[in-house]
Each structure stands twice: as structure tokens, then as C-alpha cells.
């Protein structure tokens, strides 16, 4: 039991190991200076990987810069790119696809996520194990998920088609989830929901667990039915959490790229071409770096603006 030195001797040792000159220097600093020293590395990193690229992108968006021709003469084009983007019907189509995608997946994920949380928020045998199982999809890499859902959706050998065929009786190869103009947007929404509903559930679960038991007990004694308890206690008190989940998923889905790129690449036609896919095409297929920078800035401002309006609403709900 004497493997560990006593705490007193540990403190002594630690004190000895610190060179006195360093101690002197630290002692001379104010609390504020020490605080700055602690956050400086993070701040520098943020500047380097977030703020600097942002500023550079803004700068590039006013030029005709092309990343595949770095040595071509740089010309200032002013607001021409912005003008072109905002009047381009293809861009508006992509924005609409994105909006529909965001709304559909948020509705499905929020309703399902909240329902799952509500069901799992009661103590039963194996609830912990079940929670872990439900959270599994979220822990997988989007690349893995995208690839294996491509297999699942495969018309000839795909398990998804096979199961649908088994349930409905239509032949499995009679429909293509990823190749059909009407089905492919839903194919992506389905995969995204499969992957991210657990995340919404987790946040909702935190909300439900934050409601103290005695509020329900008070309602029980006050003769409120389970239905009324749900509408007057559970839902309003979990609302800030639900809204937070919607915010996170909304921002994520607006920027959604990996899953669409892996599953459909924007096709068939441009039915699943969300804004980020258009952006990728402009930036890395057509190499119009200046133009795509302008588009990226527009997307950023849109998300930022929407998120801000939303956060304001969220704060209003929270302060009630």
C-alpha cells in the first residue's frame, strides 16, 4: 500500500521540479494575462483554420481566380459573381432541393427522435443497452454509411429492395431507390434519418430527463390525464431541447455533402443536387474558384442569418 508517496511529499516534489525562474515569471503575471496564455493556442488555431480562410474566400469571391491556373493574371470582377449566382435558375433549383431536403429530414428526425426518447425515457430492463444500440448509426463514419446503403439500395442484390419486395410483393428489381427521379431524394432522407435520428433522440432524452418527477406527481394529484401531462408539461419543458436539436440538424443538413455525394452524386439529373454538390462542381470540376467562393459566402450568410433568427426564437422559448 506504500507504492504511492504521501500527498505531502508529492507536493514537495512538484514544487522542487518547477524551476524558480519560471515561478518568478508566472508570479509576475496578472490573472488576466494567464487566462490569455491559456486560450491563446485555441485562438490562434481558430484564426488559422476558420477566420483566415473565411477572409480569403471573401477576397477571392471578387476575382476571377482559378485554382487550377494559379499563375494566370488576377482580375477584379467586383460583384459580378454574386450577380450571376443570384440570377442563375440552376442555383435557385439547387437551393430549393436543399430546402426540401432540410425540411423533410428535420421533420422526420425530430418526430421520430422525440418519440424514441419518450419511449426510452422510462426505466425498463435493458434500456441502457437499447439506447446504445440505437446510437450506433451515429457513431459510424458517413463514408461507411454511404457505401453500405449504396449496397442496400442495389436493385438486384440490395437488402432494402428485397425487404420492400417481401412486404409489398412487388419484384425487387422493379424499382431503383437511387436511380429514380421520385425516389432518390427520399432515399437520401431515409439514410440521413437512419443515421441522425439517434442524435435528435439523445438531445430530446436529455430534455425529458431534466423534467423533475415531482412536477408529474403534482400533475397526477391535480388530476391531469397522461394526455394533458404530455401537452402541458412534457412537450413545453422539452421544447428548448427539441429546438436545439432542430437547429443542429438544420445547419448540418443545409451543408450536407458527404451522403449525397456518395449515394447519388446529385443525380439522377439534378434531382438531388443540393447546394453543396453544386458548389463542389463549380469549385472542383469547373475550377471556377472565384465564382464558387462567392457561392460559398452566400450559403454561409444564408445559414448564419437563418440560424440567428432561429436562436432568437429559441431564447424566447427558453426564457418563458
Amino acid at each position: 500500500m506504500n507504492l504511492l508517496p504521501s500527498s505531502a511529499s508529492l507536493i514537495e516534489k512538484a514544487a522542487r521540479a518547477t524551476p524558480p525562474s519560471f515561478v518568478g515569471k508566472v508570479r509576475g503575471l496578472s490573472d488576466k494575462a494567464i487566462a490569455w496564455i491559456f486560450i491563446a493556442p485555441t485562438l490562434l488555431l481558430l484564426l488559422a483554420i476558420n477566420i483566415f480562410p473565411l477572409i480569403w474566400t471573401i477576397q477571392l469571391s471578387f476575382t476571377n481566380y482559378r485554382a487550377n491556373r494559379p499563375n494566370a493574371p488576377l482580375r477584379d470582377v467586383g460583384l459580378a459573381h454574386y450577380n450571376e449566382i443570384l440570377t442563375n435558375p440552376d442555383i435557385w433549383a439547387a437551393m430549393q432541393v436543399t430546402a426540401r431536403f432540410v425540411i423533410a429530414s428535420i421533420v422526420i428526425q425530430t418526430v421520430l427522435g422525440f418519440l424514441l426518447a419518450w419511449l426510452i425515457d422510462r426505466k425498463f430492463r435493458g434500456s441502457g443497452f437499447l439506447t446504445t444500440m440505437i446510437l450506433l448509426p451515429m457513431m459510424l463514419s458517413p463514408a461507411v454509411v454511404g457505401n453500405f446503403w449504396t449496397f442496400l439500395y442495389q436493385p438486384q442484390i440490395g437488402l432494402f429492395n428485397y425487404i420492400v419486395a417481401f412486404v409489398t410483393g412487388i419484384p425487387p428489381s422493379s424499382f431503383q431507390m437511387l436511380g429514380d427521379v421520385n425516389l432518390s431524394p427520399w432515399a437520401i432522407v431515409l439514410v440521413d434519418s437512419w443515421m441522425w435520428t439517434p442524435y435528435v433522440m439523445l438531445i430530446c432524452l436529455a430534455g425529458l430527463r431534466s423534467i423533475p418527477d415531482y412536477i408529474y406527481e403534482a400533475a397526477e394529484v391535480d388530476r391531469a390525464s397522461k394526455w394533458r401531462q404530455f401537452w402541458t408539461i412534457t412537450l413545453p419543458m422539452a421544447m428548448p431541447f427539441i429546438m436545439l436539436a432542430v437547429l443542429f440538424r438544420g445547419i448540418e443538413n443545409f451543408k450536407m455533402f458527404d451522403m449525397v455525394n456518395l449515394l447519388t452524386g446529385g443525380g439522377p439529373g439534378s434531382t438531388t443536387e443540393v447546394a453543396s454538390i453544386t458548389l463542389k462542381r463549380e469549385a472542383f470540376e469547373k475550377w471556377r474558384t472565384g465564382y464558387s467562393s462567392a457561392f460559398a459566402i452566400i450559403l454561409f450568410v444564408t445559414v448564419f442569418g437563418l440560424a440567428n433568427i432561429y436562436v432568437r426564437a429559441l431564447n424566447r422559448v427558453k426564457s418563458r
Partner: peptide, 21 residues
Amino acid sequence: AEPAERDTAFVFQQYSLYPHL
């Protein structure tokens, strides 16, 4: 009997108010 059927009123030690009302 269920709590609602007993028709009792309970004042809890904590302020068990409905916070959003």
C-alpha cells in the same frame, strides 16, 4: 386507487410549479 381518483391536494417540499405557465 389512482392519485386522481383519491382527490387529494399535495403541497410538495420543492416548489413544484409548472414553470412555463
